[in-house]
Amino acid sequence: MMDLLNILMTESFWAASLRIATPLIFGVLGALICERAGVLNLGIEGIFVVGAMCGWMAVWLGTGLWGGVLVAALAGAFFGLLHAILTVPLGLSQHVSGLGITLFATSVSYYTYRTALPDVSSPPRIEPFRALDIPIVSDLPFFGPVLFQQTALTWLALLMVALVWYVMNRTALGVAIKAVGDNPDSVDAQGLSVYGLRMGAIVAGSALMALGGAFLTMSAFDAFFFGMVNGRGWVCIALVIFASWRPGKALLGALLFGAFDALQVRLQTEMGALVPGQVFLMAPYILSIIALVIAARSADYPRALLTPWFKGQR
C-alpha cells in the first residue's frame, strides 16, 4: 500500500500518465465529434496507423515536424472523407464501413512503408518533438516536470480539448452538430445541410484521430513499427462512451486511462516476481470494457447515432 502511495506521489508517474493519455485525447475527441454528429467511426484504428505512418514519413522526407503533423491530419481527413461518403450520402452500415476503413487504411500504410523502405530491418529514426522546456515554470516543484516538460503535441491535445469544448458548447456550429446527431429532420427543416454537417464532422474528427497516431511516431517514439497502434483506437471508442460524449469527461477518461497504464508498468516492476507481467498488460483493456459497461447504463447517447438519414425520406 505504501508502495502505491509512493508511486502516486512521484512527478515521473504523472508525467508518464499525461504522455500516455495524449494520443487517446486526440482519438477520443475525434470519435466524439463523429459520434455527436450521429456517425460511429470504427475507422479510428486504421486512421491512427495512417497518422503515425504519414506523419513519420513526411518528417523523414524533410517536411519538418509541424509539416509532418499537417500531413498526418490531411491523411486522416482523407480516410475520414471516404468513411463520410460511404456512411452519410450512401447511408451504408457504419460498423462495416468503419472496419473496412480500418483494414484499408492499415494496409495502405503498411504497403507504402514497405514499398518506400523495402530492405530495412531496423526502422529509420527521425528527430522527434522535444520536451518544451519553458524557463522558470519548468522548475516549479511538482507541476514543472509534470506539465511543463511535455512535448508540443501534448499541449496541442490539451488545446484541442478546450477548442472542441468551446465549439460544441458555445457556438452555433456546435449546436448544429449535436442536433444533427440527435434529430437530423429538425436540422433539415431549418434549412441546414445534414449531409454537410455530418460529413464535415467525420472529416474533422478523423483528422484529430490521425494526430493521435502522429504523436506515437513523432513524440512517444521516433520511428514507425508495424502493430504500434495496438488497439489504442478501439480504446478511444470505449472511452468516448465512458465520457458521455463530453470533451471535459473525455480528457478525464483519457487521463484516468493514462494513469492506470502508467501505474501498471510500475506495479509490474515492483510485483513482477509474484504476478506474471501480462496480467498488468491486460488491465487497461479490461478497464476499458468496465468503463463501457458502467457508462452504457446511463448513456445519453446521440439519438440518431448509427441511423442513416436520406434527404426527402421521413
Binding site: 470504427l42 460498423h95 495496438n230 488497439g231 478501439w234 480504446v235 471508442i237 470505449a238 462512451i241 501480462q278 498488460l281 491486460m282 483493456y285 479490461i286 476499458s288 470494457i289 463501457l292 459497461v293 452504457a296 447504463r297 448513456a299
Partner: peptide, 18 residues
C-alpha cells in the same frame, strides 16, 4: 447492460492475445 459488442469483442481480442 447494452454494452456495444463491437467494442467489447475487439478489446477482448487484445486481452486474449496477452
Amino acid at each position: 447492460f447494452g454494452a456495444d459488442e463491437v467494442v467489447t469483442t475487439l478489446l477482448l481480442n487484445f486481452i486474449i492475445l496477452i
